[in-house]
Amino acid sequence: MEDYKPKYKGTKALPYTIYGLWLVLYTMKRPHEVCEGKWSEIDFEQKLWRKDAESTKTGLENDECPLSEQALKVLTELHKITGDFEYMFPSGAGNLHIVPETLRKMILEGLGYSVGELTTHGLRGMFSTTGNELGYNFKAVEKQLSHNIGNEVSQAYNHAKYLRMRRQVVQKYADWLHVQANKARKRKKHTSSEHDSPEQVNCIAV
C-alpha cells in the first residue's frame, strides 16, 4: 500500500481516507457500507451505487443509491488509486477492506479532530436536519438514509425506492455542501489575512 503515501491537501490524511469521508457526506451510506464497497457495485453510466440486500442494514432488499456529480468525481479519482482492487477501500493489514473504525480513526487523525467531535452519525444527522429545513422531499431523505418509511403494513406493500426524487435530493445537498465549504474557506482566508504580514497575504491571494 505504499502508493497511498501522498497526503491530502493541508492534512495528514491519505487521499483514499478523505474520499471515504466525502462518500459518506455525498451518499449518506453508513461507514461499514462505504468500507465494504466494491467497484463492481458502481455504475458510472447510470450514476448508481448498487448494493445487494446482504450488504444493507435491514438485509431485506437491494439498494440503488443515486450518485451526485460530486460523488462521481470522488469515485473517479478514487478509482485511479484503488481501481485494480476488488474493494474501493482495500486494507494493507491482511483484510480485504478497511474496517469502519479504521476509516473513522484515519479521518479524525488526518483532519485533526478529537474523538466525538466528528462522527459519521452526526454527518447523517446533518443531512436529515438540513434536508428537512430546506424543504427536501421527506420520503426521499428517509430512503436515502436507508430508514424504513411508515408502519409494518405499509412497508410490506410499499417497495418504492424514490430514485428520481432521491437523485434530486443528493445533487441539491452536494451543491449545498460546496456552497458552505466555499463560505468557510473565505472566512478562514479573511481571518488569516488579519493576522498575516503583507507578504503572507499576497502569498495566500496567489
Rank of each mutant, 00 (worst) to 15 (best):
W39V: 10
W39Q: 02
S40L: 09
E41Y: 11
E41V: 13
E41T: 13
I42V: 15
D43F: 04
D43K: 04
F44D: 06
F44M: 09
E45T: 13
E45W: 06
E45H: 07
Q46D: 11
K47W: 02
K47S: 11
L48H: 13
L48K: 15
W49D: 04
W49Y: 14
R50W: 13
R50I: 14
R50Y: 14
K51Q: 12
D52H: 10
D52C: 12
A53W: 03
A53S: 12
A53H: 12
A53T: 03
E54I: 14
S55I: 12
S55R: 15
S55A: 15
T56G: 06
K57S: 01
K57P: 02
G59W: 01
E61S: 15
E61T: 15
E61G: 07
N62G: 15
C65K: 14
C65S: 04
L67K: 02
L67D: 00
S68P: 05
E69M: 06
Q70N: 09
Q70H: 13
A71P: 00
A71H: 03
L72C: 12
L72S: 02
L72R: 06
L72E: 06
K73L: 11
L75F: 01
L78R: 02
L78F: 04
L78A: 08
H79W: 09
H79Q: 15
H79V: 04
K80I: 05
K80Q: 11
I81L: 04
F85K: 11
E86W: 07
E86N: 05
E86I: 15
Y87S: 04
Y87M: 02
M88A: 07
P90F: 03
S91H: 08
G92P: 03
A93Y: 11
L96M: 10
I98M: 10
V99I: 10
P100T: 06
P100Q: 10
E101G: 05
T102G: 09
R104H: 07
R104F: 05
R104P: 00
K105G: 05
M106G: 01
M106N: 15
I107T: 11
L108R: 13
G110A: 03
L111Q: 01
L111K: 01
L111G: 05
G112V: 03
Y113E: 00
S114C: 08
S114N: 11
S114P: 02
G116V: 01
T120L: 05
H121P: 02
H121A: 08
H121D: 11
R124W: 04
G125T: 07
G125P: 05
G125Y: 05
G125C: 10
F127W: 01
S128R: 14
T130E: 12
G131V: 05
G131D: 04
N132S: 15
N132I: 02
N132E: 12
E133V: 08
E133R: 14
